[in-house]
């Protein structure tokens, strides 16, 4: 059985995955012995749904500014389209001969293909959504990288104006993503890292204020203040990098399965 790493993908594909598995088992147990019913109508319903997906998918490709999505989505669409064709062929063959073994195999192959193609498509789409969150995380990293050159209150105010909206978006988006994941270990890491970022952010700003204040008072102790600020910056950077790493994980931890 496939493993789905988000609740949305799981809710869409898990029921059909179970049914396809059951069909394969029933088919093997029956050893091609029974007549298949007329599947023209349900196959037509799948074809219509596939045509709609192709249309929507092409629109998504045209409208997207994500080059990786534009590159990956077409092959998932072709896969679903090809599987739909197999189902149509199976239906036509079964009309001629309801006992046809090759038609049954086409039916199973087509059903599996629809499942795999839809899974690939949802995965492409999901990865694109993750890349959007990562872009926001990288903005925060870019802002953190300039913390060490802030030497006046005016610059600090601008730094905060830049950092705060990005940090809020990261917090909101990573928080929502965490709730979407089916893998508890990944969820826990994201929650922990996000909490750390939220805790460290005001402490970093405070350390930057102290550094600026020390500079304006003659600079005694500035090296230690800068060291403290840099330490906090590196801690926050580390947490954001860990968030980026975990956001990209889709595989399951073997230990958890055990």
């Amino acid at each position: 059985m496939p493993v789905f790493h988000t609740k949305t993908i799981e809710s869409i594909l898990e029921p059909v995955a179970q049914q396809v598995s059951r069909l394969v088992i029933l088919h093997e147990d029956a050893e091609d012995g029974s007549a298949m019913p007329d599947l023209e109508k349900p196959v037509q319903a799948v074809s219509r749904a596939v045509m709609n997906l192709i249309k929507v998918g092409k629109e998504t490709i045209n409208c997207s500014d994500d080059p990786i999505l534009k590159q990956d989505l077409p092959s998932a669409l072709y896969r679903v389209e090809g599987a739909s064709r197999l189902l149509e062929e199976a239906s036509a063959m079964l009309k001629q001969d309801p006992y046809s073994g090759p038609a049954r195999r086409k039916l199973i192959e087509g059903s599996r293909g629809i499942l795999q193609g839809t899974s690939s498509l949802l995965l492409c789409f999901d990865e694109s959504e993750v890349r959007k969150i990562i872009r926001e995380c990288k903005k925060v990293l870019d802002y953190l990288a300039v913390a060490e050159v802030i030497e006046s209150m005016e610059d600090l105010v601008q730094f905060l104006k830049d950092l705060s909206p990005s940090l809020s978006r990261v917090s909101r988006e990573v928080g929502a993503r965490e709730k979407e994941l089916t893998h508890q270990v990944h969820r826990d890491i994201l929650v922990r890292c996000l909490d750390q970022v939220k805790t460290l952010a005001p402490i970093l700003i405070c350390s930057m204020k102290i550094y600026i204040h020390i500079l304006s008072e003659g600079g005694k102790g500035a090296a230690e203040a800068a060291e403290n600020r840099d330490y906090l910056t590196s801690r926050m950077t580390g947490e954001i990098l860990e968030i980026i790493r975990v956001l990209q994980l889709t595989t399951y931890d073997e230990d958890e399965w055990e």
Binding site: G33, A45, V46, R48, A49, V80, L122
Partner: peptide
């Protein structure tokens, strides 16, 4: 998202098809 809705429709239609195809096999077993 429209693409999620389209994927849901495919999953539902495929489910219905597979159920119909399974019914005949189940009767035999």
């Amino acid at each position: 998202e429209v693409i999620l809705e389209a994927a849901k429709s495919i999953a539902a239609a495929t489910s219905a098809l597979v159920k119909a195809a399974s019914a005949a096999q189940r009767e035999l077993i």
